[in-house]
Amino acid sequence: MTQPATGSPGARMNIGEVLDRLRPDFPGVTIPKIRFLEDKGLIKPERTPAGYRKFTHADVERLRYILTMQRDHYLPLKVIGEHLDAIDRGLEPPPIDSVVPTVPQVALAADGLPSAGSFARQDNIRLSRKELVKIAEIDEGLLDQLEQFGLIVPRVGTGHYDTDALVIARTARELSEFGFEPRHLRAFKTAADREVGLVEQVVAPQKRGRDTAAKARAEETVSEIAALSVRLHATLVKAGLRSV
């Protein structure tokens, strides 16, 4: 029997082909992420006798719906699962926006704070020391001090710098205009290290899991907790500054 074309509704795709379809709109999607969603029961791809996953066009659209609800509406997987269950039973999923009176959206806005997705960002940017200094608009002396106090660390084995190093360097430069020196920023590093330690304690049991979705589950948990931690920290600072 002739196999249907990949673009037809009845086509069966492997997980690599599914990634090719999703990545233009969701660059951060990975194979562990898809396996994690399967482990949660949100998607149920077919399995060949050899155990390989085969996805239909409907499976891809289901993944697209899940990823959109996470990225654009920050819905937890439990709620997304309820939406999918409604769709599976021929019902319309509940509206995203609340239909009851609420406080103004501006009062609940995150003020541009990072989302969980931003913590899951992965990039391959590698900057030389010279490039970092030039792009961040800092001098060698400031970079030396930032490294001295552990605020910036080049990648192990390469000596290159990533996006995080660039953001830290630029932020340090902007703070220097208000009189902050790298030695003053050690308190931020200490606070960040404590938050990282708390997150690591929470995800440690998940990292010990042996199933294929354990890594993706731990990564998702880290991203969500990190975003909430930064939101709480920033809001507490904002609240404290009201009396200054």
Rank of each mutant, 00 (worst) to 15 (best):
M1W: 12
P4L: 06
G7Y: 14
P9W: 04
A11Q: 02
N14Q: 03
E17V: 04
V18W: 07
V18T: 00
V18M: 01
R23Q: 08
F26I: 05
F26M: 06
V29I: 11
T30S: 09
T30R: 14
K40W: 00
G41E: 08
I43R: 01
I43D: 07
I43W: 05
P45Q: 08
R47V: 08
R47F: 01
D59A: 06
V60L: 11
E61T: 07
R62F: 09
L63F: 11
R64Q: 08
Y65M: 06
I66N: 06
L67M: 09
D72C: 04
L77Q: 09
L84N: 10
G90K: 02
P94F: 10
P95L: 15
I96N: 03
V99T: 05
V99H: 08
L108V: 12
L113P: 00
A116D: 08
A116M: 02
A116R: 03
A116H: 02
S118N: 14
R126P: 13
R126Q: 11
L127F: 05
E131H: 00
E131S: 11
V133D: 10
E137N: 15
D139Q: 01
L142D: 01
L143A: 10
E147Y: 08
F149R: 11
G150L: 11
I152Q: 03
P154A: 11
R155A: 15
T158I: 07
H160S: 15
H160W: 12
H160V: 08
Y161T: 04
I168L: 07
T171V: 07
T171E: 06
A172Q: 10
G179T: 00
P182W: 15
A187T: 13
F188E: 04
A192Q: 05
D193V: 01
R194C: 08
G197V: 01
K207Y: 10
R208D: 15
G209N: 00
R210N: 14
A213T: 04
R217Y: 07
V222L: 14
E224P: 00
E224V: 04
A227I: 00
L228S: 13
V230N: 12
H233D: 15
T235S: 10
L236T: 05
V237T: 14
L241K: 15
